[in-house]
Amino acid sequence: MATRAEIEVLIAQVGMRDRAAFSSLYARTSAKLFGVCLRILKDRAAAEDALQEVFVKIWYNADKFIAGGYSPMTWLITIARNHAIDRLRAAQALTQGMGAEADAVPDGGPGPEALAVAASQRAAIDGCLEELEDDKADAVRGAYLEGYSYQQLADRSGVPVNTMRTWLRRSLLKLRDCLTR
């Protein structure tokens, strides 16, 4: 893994349409970003398509990176996560109304909480999520990592959608208080 400064410089160079820098950025970050796409889409071919789109977005948006004030890996991973979630939802939207039940989340297998964070990485957010009740923390992870809507989160918890909305907003504020402590 390259250092933060190296990635930052590469993105800035890609912003100036430097193809060699793009190639180098791909070599250093594609496995990380592919891991994110694969985890969200759970399908290798779909994740490879998504990865291609992610790097197309990186190529065209790199010039806006500096102005955005993001740390480089956050910027890259956010593009990958957002694109993968958009794809997941687009696929669900396309299957709805075509007779197929849109249930993109297979039961069984490790849940988001098991896969989300390697044991060695104890980031601030994990500690803060632990302060929330389990089902509230799962809802935050489910929205971020599975792209669940309020309706889907409500269905999974067996509560009305307005209840879920109230719960989650309250939980997000608690989370924010914890993160800013």
Binding site: G35, R44, A116, V117, I125, L145
Partner: peptide, 28 residues
Amino acid sequence: DEDLISLAQGFDEVAPGPHVRGALEDRL
């Protein structure tokens, strides 16, 4: 964005197929 990213940062790195890079560069 910066806070929630750590939910995704722990995922395993997986090398994409070698054809992805070629297709990407062809396309761009």
